[in-house]
């Protein structure tokens, strides 16, 4: 239920007629746009069977599947490295130690404001001259992690701030230290709150791996480019991989939505519930990483 639903009265007969008319008009416009696109494709011979049939060929599919594998590996390794480091950076930013907190803040603010591609170019073109020449995979993943740590740190920090203050006060009052309170009381709850946001972070991580195109790491985008150089089926190849990207990301987003909904209905407080809660956090983070 949202605010938008009570803002107008249920439409009367005239209102309903108008809505039906508008719906019909909208459908007409949508169909017209689709027809226009198809005609445009057809006029330039892009719908010809022989321009699409190669993609049911197992060789092509296997080639693209290799790209998907590359993308998933880069995303997985990126996530495995940037999730814990992101939590660490968030804790650093929240730390009572002035120096640590300043350093973490500076890191987060700077790397949140740098384009990933610029960093990748730095690793690709500039740093090798200073003796830092990473393997291709790490030229993509290291900048990816550097940027995503900053982004995730902000997400986790928001989660920690969202946990009720009474929770950490309760922790201290039973004699836990700051570190213990963080580790056993606040973080488990905070992480649970931010799980949907972390999965959204995973989506953006996956999208960022397309920059493997620039460093020639064979992820899906680079694979598609290689395939196109060979087949010249540019529009077909890129449309197919775009749909693949969208599919994987939609699945991840749906997972995030699902967890968000389940969280809203989950019970809060109580010893057993807290244990359950920590368990679920754990389960959900491992799902996200996998």
């Amino acid at each position: 239920m949202s605010a938008a639903t009570v803002l107008f009265d249920a439409p009367g007969p005239r209102g309903r007629r108008r809505i039906a008319l508008a719906s019909a008009a909208a459908v007409l416009v949508i169909v017209a746009v689709i027809v226009l696109v198809v005609v445009q494709f057809g006029r330039h011979g892009q719908l010809a069977g022989d321009r699409w049939s190669p993609f049911v060929h197992t060789g092509y599919l296997r080639f693209l599947a290799g790209g998907v594998r590359g993308t998933l590996i880069a995303t997985g390794v990126g996530a495995l490295l940037s999730f814990p480091l992101g939590v660490l950076a968030a804790l650093g930013r929240l730390s009572h130690n002035r120096l640590v907190s300043r350093l973490a803040t500076a890191y987060v603010e700077v790397f949140r404001s740098l384009p990933l591609l610029l960093l990748i170019y730095a690793f690709l073109l500039a740093l090798p001259r200073y003796g830092l020449n990473l393997p291709v995979f790490w030229k993509l993943v290291v900048p990816l992690v550097m940027v995503n740590v900053a982004v995730l740190a902000e997400v986790v920090r928001a989660g920690v701030n969202a946990v009720d203050r009474g929770q950490s006060e309760a922790g201290w009052s039973i004699g836990l230290t700051y570190g213990q309170t963080m580790r056993h009381v606040v973080l488990p709850q905070a992480l649970r709150i931010v799980i949907p946001a972390l999965i959204t972070g995973l989506v953006s991580l996956l999208k960022d791996t397309t920059l493997g195109y620039v460093v020639s790491y064979p992820e899906l985008m680079k694979t598609a480019t290689n395939l196109t150089a060979f087949t010249h089926l540019l529009i077909q190849t890129y449309l197919i991989i775009t749909v693949l990207y969208v599919l994987v990301n939609v699945l991840l987003s749906q997972l995030a939505h699902h967890l968000e909904r389940r969280m809203r209905t989950a019970p809060r407080g109580g010893g057993q519930a807290a244990e359950q809660l920590e368990h679920e956090t754990h389960a959900a983070t491992t799902t996200a990483v996998r």
């Binding site: 330039h44 892009q46 989506v203 996956l206 999208k207 960022d208 397309t210 920059l211 195109y213 985008m221 540019l234 529009i235 890129y238 449309l239 991989i241 775009t242 990207y245 969208v246 990301n249 939609v250 987003s253």
Partner: peptide
Amino acid sequence: NIPLLALLILFVFGLPD
């Protein structure tokens, strides 16, 4: 959910086709 780079490539290299 679409990577920006995929969109860019489709626009820049795909539309002329």
